[in-house]
Design a protein around this nucleic acid. Structure first.
Lengths: 233, 233
DNA sequence: CGCAACATTGAGAGCCATCAAGCAAAGTGG
DNA sequence: CCACTTTGCTTGATGGCTCTCAATGTTGCG
C-alpha cells in the first residue's frame, strides 16, 4: 500500500504538490514541510480510498490515476460528485466526518496527509490556511455548476457539460479526451441511467459535436457547440 | 434602506448574531465588535440583495423574513440553491465574485457586513476564522444533499426532501410549516416545473403524508413517511 | 473458443414537461 | 358592495424525454 519514495516518484510528488493551489504563495521550506508529513499510497483500480460517514483522518492529493467521489443512498442510489485526477483535492473542506466516499477508477497514487499533522501546519502557515479557503470555494463553485446542470439541463446537454469540464481541466486546447471512468459512473454523475447516457453520446456524435474512436476516448469536433450546450463561459 | 437601530431591532440583531454559528466560541466583546461593523438593512419583497457575478462587497445575516438564493443561466433557466431565514448565512464562503444572486421572498431585514471591515476582524479573531470554515462545511453538506436529491429522486420524493429540510430547520418538533416562497421557487429548487411540483403536493396529500390548509402552509401528518421518502437520517 | 464485462441499440412503459382550462384569493375601480 | 382584473395554485390532456427491460455488439481474458 505504501511505496517507498523512489527518486522519480518523489519528484512527481513534489511537482504535483508545489504546482497545486494548496501551495500557492508557500516558500520552498513550507512545501518541504508539507511533503515531509505526506505519504504516497497506491490504490488498485476499484479500491476504496475513503468512506462516507467515517471520521476524517486524512487529506489526499491525487498524483497519478483517476478517482471517483460519490454519495450513496440507503436505497442503493448513487450520486457521483466528482472525477478527480492529478491537480485535484480530496477530503479537504469537509467537517469531522467524510460527506462522501471515494474510489480509485484506475490504479492510482495519492499523497496522503494525516489531519493530525496537517492541521497544526495550517495553523502556523497563514498562506496555507488561506489556500484551504480557496480550495473550498473551488469545490463550492463546481458543486453549484453541477447542480445547475442536473437540475436544468437535458441528457445530451448534461453530457456536454461534463465533457466541457474535462476538456477545461486538461487545458482547453486539448481536444482529445480520455474517459477512464465507466458509462455507469458518468450516468450517476449526470443523474441519468447508463442507457440514456449512451444515447447522449450517440446524439452528440450524430450531431457532429464529438467523435468517439472508442468508448474511452472522445474527440471534440465542435468546441463551440459543446460550450453552447453546456451553457458555460 | 438602512434603518436606525431601534432598541428592539438592535436586540434582535444581537440575539441573531450571538446565537449564530458565526459567533460560536466568541466572547461578548468580539460579538460587539462584529455588531459594530454590521448594518441592518431592509429589503422589500422581491428586492435583489446581491447579484451573481458582481464583486463580493458584503456578507449577510438574515434577521427577519425569508430569502432565495439562485443561479441563473443564459437561456433563462434558473436553479434555486437555497431558501434562507434567520439563522442562515449569505455571501460567506464565496470567492471574490458572488456565485449566485439573492432576493428577498418577503419583506426582510439582513445584517450587512462590508467585507473590507469583516476580513481584518476574521484575521485577528481565530475563533471567527474557524467558524467561517464551519459555515463553509455546512453549505457544502447541504449542496451535496441537494445534488443527491435532484439527481436521484423523483418528483414527490424531492418535495419530501425540501419539506424535511424546512421542518428540520424549525426544530423537528414543528409539524406545521410556513412556505413563504411561491410554487415556482420550489419548482426551480427541485429541478421540476411548477405543475409537477403542484402535483407532488397533491400526491403527498393524497398519500396522507401532509395536509395543506392553504398553499402557504403544510402540516406534516406522517413524519416517518416523509423521512423515508426524503431518505435522510 | 467460450466467457465475462462493458457499451450500444431497440421497444415499450412511465414520469415529467407542455399546453390549456378552471379555481380561489386579493386588489382595483365604479 | 360588487363586477372586473390580476396573480397564484390546481387539475386535465397530450406529447416527449427518460427509464426499464431486452437483445446485440465489442473487447479482453482465461
Amino acid at each position: 500500500m505504501t511505496s517507498p519514495l523512489h527518486s522519480d516518484s518523489a519528484a512527481l510528488c513534489r511537482q504535483t504538490l508545489k504546482s497545486s493551489d494548496l501551495c500557492r504563495g508557500l516558500d520552498e521550506r513550507a512545501v518541504d514541510q508539507l511533503l515531509s508529513i505526506g505519504r504516497l499510497r497506491d490504490y488498485r483500480a476499484g479500491a476504496q480510498i475513503l468512506c462516507q460517514g467515517s471520521p476524517v483522518d486524512s487529506l489526499f492529493l491525487p498524483v497519478t490515476g483517476s478517482q471517483r467521489v460519490e454519495r450513496s443512498g440507503a436505497a442503493g442510489q448513487r450520486q457521483v460528485l466528482a472525477f478527480l485526477q492529478r491537480g485535484d483535492y480530496l477530503g479537504f473542506s469537509t467537517g469531522d466526518h467524510y460527506l462522501y466516499s471515494a474510489y480509485a477508477i484506475e490504479d492510482s497514487q495519492l499523497l496522503n496527509f494525516p489531519v493530525g499533522r496537517f492541521q497544526p501546519l495550517a495553523e502556523q502557515l497563514p498562506p496555507l490556511r488561506d489556500n484551504l479557503g480557496r480550495i473550498a470555494n473551488q469545490v463550492l463553485a463546481r458543486l453549484i455548476d453541477h447542480l445547475f446542470a442536473i437540475g436544468q439541463k437535458r441528457a445530451h446537454a448534461r453530457l456536454a457539460f461534463l465533457l466541457w469540464q474535462l476538456a477545461e481541466r486538461n487545458g482547453s486546447a486539448d481536444r482529445l479526451l480520455r474517459l477512464p471512468m465507466r458509462r455507469i459512473d458518468i450516468a450517476d454523475y449526470l443523474g441519468l441511467t447508463l442507457e440514456t447516457t449512451s444515447r447522449a453520446f450517440s446524439r452528440l456524435r450524430d450531431d457532429g459535436v464529438i467523435a468517439t474512436p472508442d468508448a474511452q476516448q472522445v474527440h471534440i469536433l465542435d468546441h463551440r457547440a459543446l460550450i453552447a450546450l453546456a451553457e458555460v463561459q
